[in-house]
Structures are given as structure tokens and as C-alpha cells.
Nucleic acid binder design. Structure first.
Ligand SMILES: [Mn+2]
Ligand SMILES: [Mn+2]
Ligand SMILES: [Zn+2]
Ligand SMILES: [Zn+2]
Lengths: 139, 139
DNA sequence: CAGTAATTGAGAATCATTCTCTTTTAGGAA
DNA sequence: TTCCTAAAAGAGAATGATTCTCAATTACTG
């Protein structure tokens, strides 16, 4: 993911290209484990010492609205963010708070077929997210 | 769910039976749509005007730890609670914030079989939660 | 009924997030 | 290239859900 790739993404959505937006998107793509706003701020501060906390939250909101990133919820009172927009699920480690991406096309097809038949009463499904909670073998 | 049923649940877990704990559990069982702490407080205040906010959060934490209730996360910065401990999934209405329970034994079996075969690298699954995001037909 | 550890109440503190208001800036127009 | 202006960012206060602290109360044990 180059600087120009990131720039293109902003332009595609009709968003102004600002150093802050560039830096925040770059941070999300670089940081692993679905960073918090704080993780992003820490990462950015090295190269961008003047960014305001409120700006980071503002930009994150804009990026979510424009479908460049996704929010990831956990049982903790902290929002986390995800730069991967392709359909995928998450493995939540309840011990370490690590969230690992889990891509499984076969499963997605299975679920889609399942819910095509079984149509839910008066509910239109937009997105199916599987939260797999458990623990990683620590080794 | 009678008062004695609730009492029994506390005793089974070795928890002291206090009016606050009784009231909070009763509120969760009575309130629909996966109440917030605030919903619970409002409900309880009628019969129990002196309960402290901190106590409600404390008790909710104790109940979660002792597996009498579950936390339900949303994209909002508010935790919601669920008194149903049987395995089930949730329909999230993105327009109204309604969360409807979705019980589907067939689906649970399907998923369980699926993940028995496909064993994930170094991850031990404890719980699978399906978040079905969408909208209810407004009528 | 008394003793004691657990629980609660009251209110302060925390802290992630949002808001307000002023200053700066990106990007189109001239 | 320079100007203009709406949009974005900075600074810091405010918000609001949740947590914490500590003194007072209470549920259980014996
Ligand atoms: Mn919060
Ligand atoms: Mn909050
Ligand atoms: Zn992800
Ligand atoms: Zn539920």
C-alpha cells in the first residue's frame, strides 16, 4: 500500500487529501491487531507531532462513513478499527485481546445459502459477522 | 421467572442474595431489547429509589462473571446486557438499535460441524456469536 | 444475637469520545 | 499563480458511560 494508493482511496470517495487523513489511513494499514484510536495516535505522533486527538476521532468517523475502514467492537469500552474491507470474520482472544482476521470464503457461501432459504421474518440482512471467541495456544 | 427462581440462581453461584441483585436480575429478565445499565436503573428506581449507579455497574459485572447474564456489544459506546444464557444469535437493526434474539439450533449444529472439520491454527473456540446486521421492515 | 467479610451508597475520578470555537488549509476559480 | 471559501484541523473544554474510593450497611455464619 503506497502513499499514492492511499491518496487514491481518499479521492475516490471525494474526500479532501490532508496530511492527517493520509497519516491515519497509513497507520491503520500498518498497525496490526485492529488498533484503537490511541494506538493510531501513538503511531502517528512520531512523524506527525501536532495532530490533535479530536482530529483523529473526527477522521476515523469520516473514514468509517465513507467505507474506507470499519469499526470493530469488543467487550471492552474501547472501539477498534479495521482497514480490511473485504468480507471477513474475527478470532477474539479473550486472554490477550488479540483480534485475528479470519477469511473463509467457503463459510461465507455456506452462510449466504443458509440464509437465502431460511428467510427471517421481516428482517433484511445487510451483513453477517461471525465473532469467534476463544483463546490462542500460547506457544 | 419468579422471585424464588431468581434467588435460586444467585444461591447456585454462591452469591449473597441482596435486594439490589434481585432487582437488577429481575429488571434484566423483564426488560426487552437487551437493556443498557441506564435502562435497568430507570426500571429499578420505581421500586428501589435508593440504588446507586455504581452498585448497578458493580452487580452487572458480578452477574457477568458468574455467568448469569451476558454482555452484548454494539457499535455504540454503550454496553447492553442479555439475560438469556442459552446459545443464540442477534439481529441488529441498524436504524432503530433494536436487538432481537435469534435462536437457531440447526444453524448452531451446522457451524459446530463446520468448525470441527476445519480446525483453526492454534485457536480454541469457546463461543460462536453471529451478528446479523440489517433492518427490520418498518410496518 | 453477634461477628465479620462482603456489599452498598455517595460522590469523586477516570477516560474514551465528542463538542465548540478559532485558525489553518485544500482545492477550485479567476 | 494567486484568491477565495468551504472544509478540515487544533486546542482545550465538556460529556457521559463506567470505575474507583472509602465509609456505612447488611447478609450470612455460628
Ligand atoms: Mn466509554
Ligand atoms: Mn463514553
Ligand atoms: Zn479484521
Ligand atoms: Zn440475546
Amino acid at each position: 500500500m503506497t502513499t499514492d494508493d492511499i491518496k487514491s482511496k481518499l479521492i475516490e470517495r471525494g474526500l479532501k487529501v490532508t496530511p492527517q487523513r493520509m497519516a491515519i489511513l497509513e497507520a491503520i494499514y500498518s498497525l496490526k491487531n485492529h488498533p484503537t484510536a490511541e494506538n493510531i495516535i501513538d503511531y502517528i505522533l512520531k512523524k506527525h507531532p501536532n495532530i490533535a486527538t479530536g482530529t483523529v476521532y473526527k477522521v476515523l468517523g469520516v473514514l468509517v462513513e465513507n467505507q474506507l475502514i470499519k469499526k470493530v467492537t469488543t467487550e471492552k469500552d474501547i472501539m477498534r478499527y479495521d482497514g480490511i474491507m473485504e468480507s471477513h470474520h474475527h478470532l477474539y482472544c479473550m486472554e490477550s485481546d488479540v483480534i485475528k482476521d479470519y477469511v473463509d470464503v467457503e463459510l461465507d457461501e455456506l452462510l449466504q445459502k443458509y440464509f437465502e432459504k431460511k428467510n427471517l421474518p421481516g428482517f433484511k440482512i445487510e451483513d453477517i459477522v461471525l465473532q469467534l471467541k476463544g483463546t490462542f495456544d500460547n506457544r
